[in-house]
């Protein structure tokens, strides 16, 4: 049941690096993160990787496996053949710190730029009343585990460093949508979505939604509805197209 698997793992730091070959034992039922841990324990004790829960709940272990953005702890070895070479590289959109660990501070910076929940002034704690149907829209977005795989994938910043300044990325545009759709939030977020957070740069390719391990419909349920709200105030051709393609209430 166990076999010797072939791995290529990117090793290096901000000054450069390369793929390194390893042959390592693989046992039944294991995930890629188990193999990385086995490498640490047997062949490369200083191999850097970020992880925490090992159950797909914390969003720490994001990387690219054979070029696809994935969580290392939720990628089973049984999805590969025994003779396949498995290549593990760090997320490409963020600067490398070491090996598989990247500097994700971009995301924390963007998080801070979004004005926080603004509660109604006249409600005391305990007086909040909301219907389940009304909270569900924002609840979907709050399933986000902040793995930043969507941020890593979105072409607006993946290949365009220069856009990072103006673009919050799918995760944080979704945060704007979450607050906009919060039944009791009192702030107006529509104009700032477009003007401060770069919603206009998104051309609804849905690549972000495809990689989301929580299967959140980022584009359909957050970005397009936000674009629609912007369009209600201002004409935007992409929304017009979006409306035609994905009609929803």
């Amino acid at each position: 049941m166990s076999y010797q698997g072939k791995f290529r793992v990117w090793r290096g730091d901000d000054t450069g690096g390369a793929l390194e070959d390893f042959t390592v034992e693989v046992n039944e039922g294991e995930v890629v993160l188990d193999i990385i841990h086995r490498l640490q324990a047997t062949q490369a004790p200083d191999l850097a990787v970020r992880w925490n829960c090992k159950a797909g709940k914390c969003g720490s272990c994001s990387a690219e496996i054979n070029g696809k953005p994935r969580l290392l702890c939720m990628t089973r070895m049984s999805t590969f053949t025994e003779d396949e070479v498995i290549t593990v590289t760090p997320m490409r959109t963020f600067p490398v710190i070491r090996d598989l660990v990247t500097d994700v501070s971009f995301n924390y910076t963007k998080a801070r730029e979004i004005p926080s929940f603004t509660p109604p002034k006249d409600l005391a704690p305990g007086e909040y009343r909301m219907q389940q149907v009304d909270v569900e829209r924002s609840q979907e977005f709050r399933k986000c585990i902040e793995c930043f795989l969507c941020q890593n994938t979105c072409h607006v910043i993946r290949d365009h460093e220069e856009n990072k300044e103006a673009f919050a990325g799918p995760r944080f545009l979704m945060r704007v949508a979450e607050l906009e759709m919060h039944p009791l939030d009192t702030a107006d977020r529509v104009d700032s979505a477009q003007e401060s957070h770069g919603l206009g740069l998104c051309n609804i390719t849905k690549c972000c939604s495809e990689v989301c391990p929580e299967h959140i419909h980022i584009t359909d349920n957050a970005l397009i509805p936000m674009k629609e709200r912007v369009a209600d105030r201002k004409y935007d051709p992409i929304v017009w197209l979006g409306n035609k393609l994905f009609r929803r209430s």
Binding site: S116, F117, P119, P125, G126, Y128, M130, Q131, Q132, V135, S138, Q139, R142, L179, H182, D185
Partner: peptide
Amino acid sequence: VWELETYGALFDR
């Protein structure tokens, strides 16, 4: 718990 709602938490209803 109520205070968390004032911070923006969305519990099931």
